[in-house]
Amino acid sequence: MSNLTAPSVHHYLDELDRALHDLPRARRREILRDISAHIDAALADAPEQSPAVIATILDHLGTPTEIAEAARAELPPDRSRIAARDVIAIVLLLVGGVVVPFVGWLVGVVLLWTSTAWRTRDKLIGTLLVPGGLFAPVLLGGGATFFASTTEDASCGSVSAPTPSSAATVVQQCTTTGGPGIWSTILIIVLLIITVGGPLFSTFWLIRHARRTA
């Protein structure tokens, strides 16, 4: 008698399948295969294949619920989720200050320090790198655009004054007045890299170091 033809075995395996429904597919299939093979082999080894023998085999196996509980106990702890409030803290720290200047970021800081998901070291990184989150680079970027447009106007405006000079002089004047502009542009780019990179780094840091719950 193959286990598939014995109704009690069929019923048992069905129940086991249902009890295992919340487990990853591969785990479920492996357990079903192992249990099914166990029953087949035990039946093959038994001197006779009566319903009583089958009942004893199933009884020794334990209930499907017991097996499913054992299977669940072997699952690695679920480390996939960060609590919703901690996700909000991370988001606010990064962009809260952009949406609602200062206040948005400050709410993120409060959520960060009242959370149990991070250690003090992580909280310091989250707060100090960089205060305001992406507000500073947004401000800096806006300022730089404004600064660049005004210096351009100023430098080229002076050159465009009507003089009898040649085109070469105009170009020369443009580059000499453009000198400090280039350095301030480089400075702004460096500042942008730091103020963008800092908050992004601390965001990744907080995601990596958050204690996760099931």
Binding site: R27, E30, I31, D34, I35, H38, H60, L61, G62, T63, E66, I67, E69, A70, A71, A73, E74
Partner: peptide
């Protein structure tokens, strides 16, 4: 499972083996 101390439900050993 022979002594009924270490294993009472034989089926629960399979997830452990896995």
């Amino acid at each position: 499972g022979a002594d009924g101390v270490l294993v009472t439900s034989e089926g629960t050993v399979y997830p452990l083996l896995a």
